[in-house]
Amino acid sequence: MKKSFNIYLVLAAFATIAFTQSCVEAEDLVTPNVAAPVLVLLEGTSFDAESPVTVGSKFLELDKTNILDHTKGIDSIPVPNLDIAVFINNTDEIAKLITDTSGSAELIISWADLGLAEAKSGNQVRLEFTGTYKNVAFRKYHTVRVN
Rank of each mutant, 00 (worst) to 15 (best):
G122D: 11
F87L: 12
G103R: 06
S121K: 08
T31N: 07
T31C: 01
K120E: 00
P78G: 04
T16S: 05
I88H: 07
V86D: 11
N33C: 10
H142N: 04
S22D: 10
V136E: 06
I17W: 05
K2R: 00
F47R: 00
F47Q: 00
C23T: 09
K58Y: 00
I88L: 02
Q124I: 08
A26I: 14
D92Y: 01
A112C: 03
L97T: 02
T20G: 11
S51Y: 08
L41K: 00
D28Q: 01
A112F: 00
L107Q: 15
K2S: 10
V10T: 15
S46L: 14
T16R: 07
G103W: 07
I17F: 10
F14K: 08
P32Y: 12
V38T: 09
V53Q: 13
V53R: 07
V34E: 15
V10G: 15
S4A: 15
V10M: 10
D113H: 07
I108K: 15
V24Y: 12
A13Y: 02
E27V: 13
N66V: 01
V144F: 08
E61W: 09
Y8R: 14
I77D: 10
G56Y: 00
V136A: 04
L9D: 11
I17S: 09
A12W: 00
E118W: 00
L127H: 02
I17D: 14
T101N: 07
